[in-house]
Nucleic acid binder design. Sequence first.
RNA 1: GUCCCCAUCGUCUAGCCCGGUUAGGACACCACCCUUUCACGGUGAGAACCGGGGUUCGAAUCCCCGUGGGGACGCCA
Length: 465
Amino acid sequence: MSQVRVRFAPSPTGFFHIGSARTALFNWLYARHTGGVFILRIEDTDKERNSEAFLNLIYDSLSWLGLNWDEGPKIGASGGGDFGPYRQSERGAIYKEYVGKLLAAGRAYEKDGAIWFKLFGERYEIFDEHRKKTVMKVKLPPVVIEDQIRGRVERLEDEDFVIVRSDGNPVFHLVNVIDDIAMQVTHVIRGEDHLSNTSKHVLLYEGFGVKPPIFAHIPLILKQNGPGKMSKRDQGALIEEYQKRGYLPEALVNFLCLLGWNPGDDREKMPIADIIRLFDLPGVNQSNARFDDKKLAHVNMAYLLELPAEKFIAQAREFFARQSESPVTLAAAAATAEYFAEVMRLSQPKIKGFEELPAYTSYFFTDEFSVDAKVREKVMAKGDPKARLAELIKVAQAADFSSEAVLTEALKKLAESKGLGFGDYQGVARLAVTGTNVGPNITGIFYVLGRERVRSRLEKFLATV
RNA sequence: GUCCCCAUCGUCUAGCCCGGUUAGGACACCACCCUUUCACGGUGAGAACCGGGGUUCGAAUCCCCGUGGGGACGCCA
């Protein structure tokens, strides 16, 4: 058995989006599953639309997702290989050589300054209603594609097609096939949108006298709302965005695996090693999948919950540092490591993603937090909040703030002494100290905030009622 | 318009290949429990085999036709 060689071949003509990421992921998984080679090849033959910024985005996004390539442009820990260069813009000589072979074999010819691939068969002219012109067709049996996911697919390819533009630049179909031959690619795993190109590619392989690789066309990701496939313009489409919003890459990868593939049992959240072990091409679905950000958020939370505290804190700190300046982010940046860690200790079990953090923790970092009017109305309408506040202030003055546990005891004792429950205090205390009705345990908040801030906030609030 | 692919809860899916299940799980939604708010967690509810024909004792499962969805029809990739 020869080694599996797969490639991911993006073109740097736009933002790196979630569909591309999943194609890369499935290629990478297959390489890792089989002990094969994962090649990154940059298809930058479109000089008009290429950009270096988009190219860097491809590198960044793949690296962030943990999809390291064995061969390809050398970036960081990935890259190298004996089949370079891995950017098509640097492979002109190779294409020329291959086109020469086609020309010499009579499989290509020049017309209108371009080079066309020649189909062998009986020729006839016909008027194409849709294109409103007469075209030259060739009588041929349909091309047969044995697809690992779709099964046997037949498609008729009956017109010569351009392989080198009149400006001398080779087109996608040509370079894609040449590179796959030259790089000895064994499996072509790509989106289903390429299925109808595949007949051209198979013909080109034949033209070069080479056996085509194994094809596997994976289903597309459809946009969450509205019709059609996910495109770069759609909400939630960009990998870069998830990175900025603080999603965990391993969560996004796990979620992406579940779009069109499953391990064969009910497991969903699973370590990448297990996914690598179980992933295989026949296990990939045939139908398109709709993107669901709620499920992604759920998976992200599951990963967040089991992230070691030190990592959570470190990543939260980075996340805050990346945010635009605001009273909260500035104060968070200025906070001591100990204080920041304490706030995160309370927050980690509660949030679905880092992006919730600034709003969720604002009152820890600034006294200028906003008070939710609706919550205020609700809390103030119940019982005797004024009296409760006065009692809380007394406790805040006298209580031992040295631990969360003793504070909990103190508040319980207070409630008991008045014949009330803990709940009669926590709501109003939370409102006064945080301005909201959501958050960590109230005594945890007291402890982290410290006596002075708790007392002053309680007093300040009491003065407004 | 032509060609190609696809079709199970709102969504992701198991089951299909090798016909016989109370059609299973997860997300979301709802209710209840836990509880110090909010989450988490637990329990439960509602929710699907696109339609029509075949084949068969029996069809989600096999076949055909519709319909619906998706993709491709560039000297873009």
